[in-house]
């Protein structure tokens, strides 16, 4: 794949496939421009915006020649171009999913700085915390590599960081979208070339409502409530087991099922847990319930099993209480 820039066009090319990314506007759009710095370049003797854009497009090829996402970067810069030129205010962009030293970021940053010294592109570390650490509604656009983190909650977190009217640029080299994101992406403007696809979404009220409802904050609160409910049920069941109460035959299966569900929910929250040992503690409690059950079935002396069940349940319930205080 390569990118060719002329005085009038920027073309993405791979074998016989050609895709015109941009054509130089004959009459630049003045309507949104309120102050000068970049605009003068069109008419001064120095480098024009078009020259710089062309240069940066070809720099993608120089710096990211072996990068499978090369086409995505070109498509991204094409979509960013009108946004960056739309007014003369400094813009704050963020990027998530690629390595923080990704060369494509440097190329985009160079073009942004050329337009306005205050423009910034911040590369976020690949951790869900880095998304939630960005102030809500603070970015003009977010570049998001879908293949690195296809979780819907993370995509929604990214949307929540974007200003109304800003852009979410989801890019991928995979053919299939994660099922949970299909509906979202059908609303997007889709550009693709070769294996590279870019979905561009403009953040409006409806999208923000969707993101708020499905972001990690809402996800965590919902999941925390589910855990608390299950743990309350479990505490009663395990107390009854330890007290030697007559229990229905399926009581142990119910306890194990609840613990298995709890373990799965905890694992789904894994990146957000303060105590990352919680899932394995849930498993240890499940193991001691099962050992106790086997002991009951085999009519063994239950002393050791009871001790382990007591010990592991105390450890687990204490840890849950600290992680999810009520």
């Amino acid at each position: 794949m390569t990118i060719k820039a002329t005085d009038t066009t920027v073309i993405l090319q791979e074998g016989t496939l050609r895709h015109t990314l941009l054509e130089k506007p004959e009459f630049p759009d003045y309507s949104n421009v309120t102050a000068m710095p970049h605009f003068t370049y069109y008419y001064t003797e120095g480098e024009t915006i078009w020259d710089r854009l062309s240069l940066n497009m070809t720099r993608f090829v120089d710096f990211c020649r072996d990068d499978l996402y090369l086409g995505c970067y070109a498509l991204i810069l094409r979509r960013l171009y009108p946004l960056l030129l739309s007014d003369n205010r400094a813009k704050n962009l963020a990027a998530y999913g690629a390595d923080t030293d990704c060369m494509a970021y440097r190329v985009i940053q160079d073009f942004m700085t050329f337009l306005h010294k205050g423009n910034a592109l911040t590369a976020l570390a690949l951790s869900p915390f880095s998304l939630t650490a960005v102030s809500p509604g603070s970015c003009t656009a977010m570049l998001y590599r879908l293949d690195a983190c296809p979780a819907p909650a993370a995509v929604c977190d990214a949307i929540n960081r974007i200003k109304p009217g800003g852009l979410l640029l989801l890019y991928t080299i995979k053919q299939a979208l994660p099922a949970e994101l299909t509906a979202l992406c059908t609303q997007a403007q889709k550009d693709n070339f070769g294996s590279c696809t870019l979905y561009t979404l403009t953040v409006d009220d409806a999208l923000m409502d969707f993101a708020r409802a499905n972001g990690s904050e809402s996800f965590i609160l919902l999941r925390a409530a589910e855990i608390t409910r299950r743990v309350n049920d479990l505490q009663n069941l395990i107390q009854a087991m330890l007290a030697g109460a007559a229990l229905p035959g399926d009581a142990y299966f119910i306890a194990v099922t609840i613990l298995q569900q709890t373990e799965e929910i905890l694992l789904s929250l894994y990146d957000y847990l303060e105590d990352d040992g919680l899932p394995v503690r849930a498993n240890a409690l499940k193991e001691s319930v099962l050992n106790y059950y086997v002991g009951v079935c085999r009519q063994c002396d239950l002393t050791s099993y009871r001790e382990k069940l007591t010990q592991f349940s105390e450890i687990f319930f204490d840890a849950v209480g600290k992680e999810f205080p009520q």
Binding site: Y252, L290, C300
Partner: peptide
Amino acid sequence: REFFDYERLAERLHVLLEL
């Protein structure tokens, strides 16, 4: 006998597999 007996471990595994 309580924690390493394969017959007991197999019963535990049985429940996990059933689920």
